[in-house]
Simulated scan of single mutants.
Amino acid sequence: MKRAIILYLATLIVMVPLDFLFLGVLAKDFFKAQVGPALGDVNIVPAAIFYLLYPVGMVIFVSYAAGSDWQHTLLYGALFGLFCYATFDLTALALLKGWTWPATLVDIAWGTFATATSATLGLLIANAIQRQA
């Protein structure tokens, strides 16, 4: 249980700033240009639920599935991110007016990268913490 909590917190600490940097700075203008009408003000409650819940999925379906091997964590993280972000983006493309293919492809690529990176760095941080304990 202690390992799960350390993995969760380490993954969360990597993922949130990484995603905020991408969405809030690096890709902000891109997404505004691509899907501006579909974007509204951020609803903080669902956003907070996502950021608290998604790392749970990473720990269960990536970190535990991969064991303590960072290469497998990187691969499983990329796959988990691909499937999760593709589920959202392809559904948005199918159902939301104004959602675009470029936004879909960029967001799926981002989700693949961000999930792989967050899960892997979370694992490495957790391993380092547990070695010192």
Results as ranks from 00 to 15, higher is better:
56 V>Q: 08
133 A>T: 15
29 D>T: 10
20 F>Y: 08
45 V>S: 04
25 V>A: 11
132 Q>E: 15
1 M>Q: 11
113 F>Y: 13
18 L>D: 08
33 A>H: 13
93 L>P: 04
96 L>S: 07
48 A>L: 15
12 L>D: 03
101 W>M: 12
30 F>D: 04
43 N>I: 10
65 A>G: 09
4 A>E: 09
48 A>H: 06
50 F>V: 00
82 L>T: 04
89 D>L: 01
99 W>K: 05
11 T>Y: 09
129 I>T: 09
122 G>K: 01
57 G>A: 07
39 L>Y: 05
127 N>K: 15
53 L>K: 02
68 S>P: 00
110 W>H: 05
59 V>M: 14
8 Y>D: 09
74 L>H: 02
100 T>P: 10
77 G>L: 12
44 I>P: 00
50 F>H: 10
9 L>Y: 06
11 T>N: 14
29 D>C: 00
117 T>Y: 14
52 L>F: 14
93 L>F: 14
115 T>D: 13
61 F>G: 15
109 A>Y: 03
96 L>I: 11
131 R>W: 01
13 I>L: 14
75 L>G: 03
14 V>A: 14
72 H>W: 15
79 L>H: 04
106 V>I: 09
15 M>H: 13
31 F>Q: 04
83 F>E: 03
82 L>V: 01
54 Y>M: 07
47 A>L: 09
129 I>E: 03
20 F>A: 13
93 L>E: 03
125 I>P: 11
66 A>F: 06
115 T>K: 11
95 L>H: 12
106 V>H: 05
62 V>F: 08
116 A>S: 15
65 A>C: 03
126 A>P: 05
95 L>Y: 13
29 D>R: 11
114 A>P: 12
92 A>V: 00
116 A>R: 02
75 L>P: 05
66 A>I: 03
22 F>M: 14
96 L>D: 06
108 I>T: 07
118 S>I: 02
130 Q>P: 00
